[in-house]
Design a protein around this nucleic acid. Structure first.
Lengths: 208, 208
DNA sequence: GAAATCAGTGAACAACTGTTCACCCAACTA
DNA sequence: TAGTTGGGTGAACAGTTGTTCACTGATTTC
């Protein structure tokens, strides 16, 4: 594999990581678009000029951040979908995963949720593309569900988008949620559960 | 009413409007949070210091903008709900209104959609509050629909949130939509229609 | 062991930011 | 008509921004 990492490469990777981490922190405090190159460098413990040894611009760092966030998100969902229990009670599981995962990777989700709409053109497009991929992936799973097998590809895509969209909206709510309010948290979880149940209810009567 | 507007008051109102308009334009180009006081003043044809004669800060201007945008949004929906035809085919009407209204007031919607998540704390909170109001207003309407009359207040609130959320998401898509693509526009409209139909389908089987 | 590589330094730059101040002069009030 | 009010001016301020540059010194290569 990729053995023989020289001490230089290792150190480089380390400060690169520090820059990403610093950017993520600052983004969750004030938003990525409001975060300056100098702030990132300072928090990473590095002089501004050193930034350019790792990224050409803040946009490039933003793209790297998008990739990193969706990476952890993907592994999380892949792990969850391996669990057979999840497949049986897909709704409760999804609601549970949603709240827990968001709470544990708050910074990552906050970044995606905020920059999906607000920030720089490049970052926004990248996130949009990743979310479209997600919709398609979920559509493949949904297409195998009992009531849906017979649907047209367009309809499956539509309902998949409906799900992802609500997931994102719920994630946004958890991110925005003030710390240490388990009541609010349970409320969001319950709301998500009911919304999904309502949507699923419509499945068996759907036509065209 | 408020007659006897002196030439001074009138002129003041005019430049205040110019500042708001300039801020809205710049927001749709680069986002509100990335828009500086100086840029706004310049585009409004006024020196930076003059800004302070009208607003204490950019945050205050942002709040005024939120109010203005939700004002036009409200009148639009109120007008539409007066039309009896709308009440009969509520879904098609909603989809139609959505796309048309967003297209016509693109700048306003873009502002709300973007700053709902991204930008300054104060503006974000204000928009969140306005949207919560919207959810409650819609809930009152929904509570009168045939299948829903018997639901608990909590459930009505939930489905109302589901609707508003999807409206917002669809509006975001229209805003992000490249100019002059009627095919994409029709696609979004059709998607919104189907999503609403699917949700409504679940109504009659809902329990608890 | 000498030479080359390169992540990180620190100073300098021009441009832009929010905010202040004394000032001007047209529109109001008395 | 004289005096006051107040929206708009232009210059100045102290900070912050992205970007450049010649540099240093440890690590790698030969």
């Amino acid at each position: 594999m990729s053995e023989a990492v020289s001490a230089r490469q290792l150190q480089k990777e380390r400060t690169r990581g520090a820059l990403l981490e610093a950017a993520l922190e600052l983004s969750s405090e004030q938003g990525f678009a409001q975060t300056s190159l100098r702030q990132v460098a300072k928090r990473a413990g590095v002089v501004p000029a050193a930034f350019y040894r790792h990224f050409e611009s803040m946009d490039e760092l933003g793209l790297a951040l998008v990739e990193r966030c969706f990476g952890t998100l993907r592994t999380m969902i892949r792990d969850a979908s391996r669990d057979p229990q999840v497949f049986l009670q897909i709704i409760d599981a999804a609601a549970e995963i949603l709240v827990e995962a968001v709470k544990q990777n708050k910074a990552d989700f906050a970044f995606v949720a905020r920059e999906r709409i607000g920030g720089s053109e490049v970052v926004r497009r990248a996130i949009g593309h990743e979310l479209d991929l997600f919709v398609s992936e979920l559509a493949v799973v949904l297409a195998r569900l009992p009531n849906i097998e017979t649907w047209s590809a367009d309809d499956v895509q539509m309902v998949s988008r409906l799900f992802v969209r609500n997931m994102v909206a719920n994630a946004e709510e958890v991110v925005e949620m003030p710390e240490g309010r388990p009541d609010l948290e349970e409320r969001i979880r319950e709301g998500a559960r009911r919304q999904m149940r309502l949507i699923v209810l419509g499945f068996k009567d759907w036509r065209s």
